[in-house]
């Protein structure tokens, strides 16, 4: 079971861009540890920045995987840039927009924007971050190292997400 950090794909324009959302809920266990109360302050539940990067990586990974018909094993190879200007808390929704900047047999580059939709402040979403990622098609780049033939990257968790987003996942 892959731990998914996006809830739905809103848009998938082949080889161009993928938009997804993540609702942040206080029911998520990790928010009770990040950060728990200490002697100086009460609990401070904040979406970890590393998991925001993972959400963008999953969004970008779907875009890159889709471009290759989900035949390639797409893995996050490099985090080129992460800029986050504010915290996201329970009740907020994050919207990830991943735009493909390069794609070839070896891998792909994706430029991403993170926006925050605060239900208490209706209106335009606020851009809170920019994340640039590079993905590798590992079967093409690991100097002869062999991996299992089945595509362990785009597992059932990804297929379920795609199906529930209305995207064909019959790979």
């Amino acid at each position: 079971m892959r731990w998914m950090w996006i809830d739905r794909v809103l848009e998938l324009t082949p080889r161009s861009r993928c938009v997804s959302i993540k609702h942040i809920s206080l029911a998520e266990d990790h928010l009770h540890d990040h950060f728990a109360a200490d002697a100086s302050r009460p609990p401070m539940p904040i979406m970890p920045a590393s998991l925001i990067v993972e959400g963008m990586a999953q969004t970008g990974g779907i875009l890159v995987g889709h471009a290759g018909g989900f035949k390639e094993k797409v893995v996050l190879a490099k985090v080129g840039k992460v800029e986050l200007s504010r915290e996201a808390i329970p009740g907020d929704t994050l919207r990830y927009t991943a735009t493909m900047t390069l794609f070839d047999a070896a891998g792909a580059s994706v430029s991403g924007i993170v926006e925050l939709l605060d239900p208490a402040k209706p209106g335009s979403p606020e851009q809170i971050g920019a994340i640039d990622l590079m993905f590798s098609h590992i079967d093409q780049n690991m100097s002869g190292i062999e991996f299992p033939s089945h595509n362990f990257v785009f597992s059932e968790s990804f297929r379920t997400l795609l199906r529930s987003s209305g995207i064909a996942a019959d790979f």
Partner: peptide, 14 residues
Amino acid sequence: ESIDFLDIGFKLEQ
């Protein structure tokens, strides 16, 4: 590192 070579290639293309 080895993965940087892929990145350098992409960035030279751009």
